[in-house]
């Protein structure tokens, strides 16, 4: 069986460049799975978990949380431009709860709509992360 070549790139570095059987990507309009020879496709991502399935077994062997970004499936493979990606087990649930509380406080104090919008965007990914942790 042919494998799918995938790359995960963050602004700071290349996070992963490997082969997998299947990668499940949290698209803005819903999760989608990419297998080898997928049709060319481009989607933005919502905050969520990228699951990488190494071989044909059913469980994901790697799960990464991304804050959002862009997934591009081209004939040469899957490229994920992730704003920030972290391994799920490196997340501290207490810290996260604290951050969410802080953000909510900031939101209450926000001076105008633009700033409030910015904080809401921050909140969105933190809540999404809390859901999966």
């Amino acid at each position: 069986m042919s494998t799918l070549h995938y790359e995960i790139v963050s602004p700071e570095r290349l996070l992963a460049d490997a082969e997998a059987a299947m990668v499940v990507v949290p698209g803005t309009d819903g999760d989608f799975a990419v297998l080898a020879d997928h049709a060319p496709f481009m989607s933005t991502m919502r905050p969520g978990v990228i699951a990488i399935h190494g071989d044909s077994d059913s469980t994901a062997n790697e799960r990464l949380f991304v804050k959002g970004g862009l997934a591009q499936v081209s004939p040469s493979g899957l490229t994920i431009l992730a704003e920030e990606a972290m391994a799920l087990d490196s997340v501290d649930a207490d810290d996260l709860a604290q951050n969410i509380a802080n953000a909510l406080e900031d939101l209450a104090r926000a001076s105008d709509d633009i700033e409030a919008g910015r904080i809401e965007a921050e909140l969105e990914w933190m809540v999404a992360l809390q859901d999966v942790v």
Binding site: G27, T28, D29, A39, P40, F41, M42, S43, T44, L70, S74, P75, S76
Partner: peptide, 22 residues
């Protein structure tokens, strides 16, 4: 060419939305 031009892409959501996000 090998990245975008060669193939016809499906966009989800629309091209404009992706651009707006990027």
């Amino acid at each position: 060419g090998d990245d975008l031009g060669g193939a016809v892409y499906d966009y989800e959501p629309s091209e404009e939305d992706i651009l707006e996000d990027l």
